[in-house]
């Protein structure tokens, strides 16, 4: 019970007379009673009494300033209660990704989300792919990078339209960034390459609405990359093993890399490629063509 105005849990009426006006900051959330609507102090200056009184449960929230007489006297633990929420923390991103996916489908666009560590050769591979696809195929690129626009400049040099999304301190692209960039690209019936920020951890959790994630692992990295970053390899439909032209100079076991990738994703497809020699690029473009046919068929 409140020692100042006499109101408290279990009471059904409250007469707020002269004393009540002394409550400069009146937290009413614990009041489980109805108010007497006959009282006249509603237009007093104390702002915490300006709620309307046609409710019977005081579950509205008033920020209680310091010195709140009720708060000082209440034991907060008595009022604390659990509310069940059950919501996916990535729900908003996932909803936007679903929106993007519908958007891509309705525009006849196959969206591929390219992910890798920094320096795995995403941009070089993309440039080599675009040079083969253009001018016969409609293509567009969204470039995610933390700071520079150097990658987008390299892409534009091929003639493909590219939008640079600088994530600043952000370590990944999210669905909202892709939504905005896609609206500016005006792609219809083509392939959208999304080059994610070079990072094998963070982009794994953020669905962008793509048809497939494609992970690029170069032979200059370790064979254990899939085990160190399993979520990205698990989320990807295809692994491109890049820079295979360097294999004669390296002590690298490609079969071990592939076995490790299949340990975390038994169904992942694998293509060995080199942007330098062009090895495997045709197979990669064939894979894209098949993915596009499937996307069109299911749209």
């Amino acid at each position: 019970m409140c020692g100042v105005c006499g109101c408290g849990k279990g009471e059904t009426r409250l007469e707020m007379g002269e004393q009540a006006q002394g409550h400069t900051a009146h937290d009413h959330r614990h009041h489980d009673h109805e108010h007497d609507h006959g009282h006249t102090h509603h237009d007093h200056a104390h702002v915490h009494h300006d709620h309307d009184h046609d409710h019977s449960h005081h579950d509205h929230s008033h920020p209680a300033p310091a010195g709140d007489v009720h708060s000082l006297r209440d034991d907060p633990s008595r009022r604390a209660h659990l509310v069940s929420v059950e919501q996916d923390i990535l729900g908003k991103n996932n909803a936007l990704a679903a929106h993007n996916r519908r958007h891509f489908n309705s525009h006849g666009v196959l969206a591929l989300n390219l992910v890798s560590s920094p320096g795995a050769g995403k941009t070089s591979l993309l440039v080599a792919s675009l040079q083969r696809l253009l001018p016969g195929t409609t293509v567009a690129v969204i470039e995610g990078d933390q700071e520079t626009s150097a990658d987008a400049d390299r892409i534009r040099a091929t003639g493909a339209p590219a939008i640079q999304v600088n994530t600043g301190r952000g370590c990944h692209l999210d669905a909202a960034m892709i939504d905005e960039a896609f609206h500016r690209l005006h792609v219809q019936d083509g392939i959208l390459f999304i080059e994610n920020v070079g990072n094998l951890v963070c982009p794994a959790g953020f669905d962008l609405g793509e048809a497939h994630k494609v992970v690029i692992a170069s032979v200059t990295e370790g064979e254990d990359k899939p085990l160190k970053y399993p979520n990205m390899f698990a989320a990807s439909s295809l692994m491109l093993v890049s820079k295979v032209d360097l294999l004669p100079h390296l002590d690298f076991d490609v079969d071990l890399l592939i076995a490790n990738a299949r340990r975390v994703n038994p169904s992942i497809a694998v293509i060995k490629v080199s942007a330098t020699t062009g090895e495997g690029i045709d197979r990669w473009l064939k894979w894209i063509g098949a993915a596009r046919d499937m996307a069109v068929a299911s749209a």
């Binding site: 907060p76 604390a80 659990l82 929420v85 919501q87 996916d88 990535l90 959790g205």
Partner: peptide, 18 residues
């Protein structure tokens, strides 16, 4: 040959509020 069925959750379950 494993297909993950559970273990990728990221969910706000409950809030204790006052």
């Amino acid at each position: 040959g494993l297909i993950v069925e559970q273990g990728e959750e990221l969910r706000l379950k409950e809030l204790e509020v006052i």
